[in-house]
Amino acid sequence: MDIGAPFFKLGMFGEDASLAVAACLGIGFGFFLERAGFGSSRKLTAQFYLTDWSVLKVMFTAIVTAMVGVYVLSAIGWLDFSKIYLVPTFLVPQIVGGLVFGVGFIVGGYCPGTSVAGIATGKIDALVYALGMIAGIVVYAETFEALFSGWNEATPLGQVTLPTVLGIPYGVLVVAVVALALGAFALAGRVEAALRPRS
């Protein structure tokens, strides 16, 4: 099949129209986050006490849905995968950053995207979390030269996907991630049932 996507990268519309696209995609993004209950820090953090696995269920379902879609649309030759932006991999900063972010998640109760869903539905703690995030980013920027610029781009692997790094064919890894997700969903159901208070 002839390449037909991504539309923007093929020049089908310009920068200004892309902002309208962003707003529309954002509405869908925020809508489903709130629908899932992710405007509530208590629901989000219940994941880490294993009583409510919605974070894992929603996240992995979304990842699997988009992953399979991208794989199939690329495999039939319609979507040009090489034109999709990949965040470059830097091992050490992403390991440390992920740990710090994870602690921030359970301490603060939200992640950046879900804090927006919380603010939109009136959560004062979500607003305070967002103000904290702004403070954190300012601290990062102001201390960047002294604390981060030496290693923020350490251990670079480039813009590289797991099939390339692991030497496993793309399709095989897609199937493996689907299987991993199904296994995680089964585990989620069992643990939730075991921890449910009996009445």
Binding site: F29, S41, M59, V87, P88, F90, P93, Q94, V96, G97, G98, L99, V100, F101, G102, V103, G104, F105, I106, V107, G108, G109, Y110, C111, P112, G113, T114, S115, D125, A126, V128, Y129, A130, L131, G132, M133, I134, A135, G136, I137, V139, Y140, A141, F148, N152
Partner: peptide, 20 residues
């Protein structure tokens, strides 16, 4: 909430992105 938000902000800057 404020302190956790600050940590998440710093972590996301280090890692070049957040949960989204």
């Amino acid at each position: 909430a404020f302190f956790g938000g600050a940590l998440a902000g710093i972590g996301a800057k280090m890692a070049l992105g957040c949960t989204s």
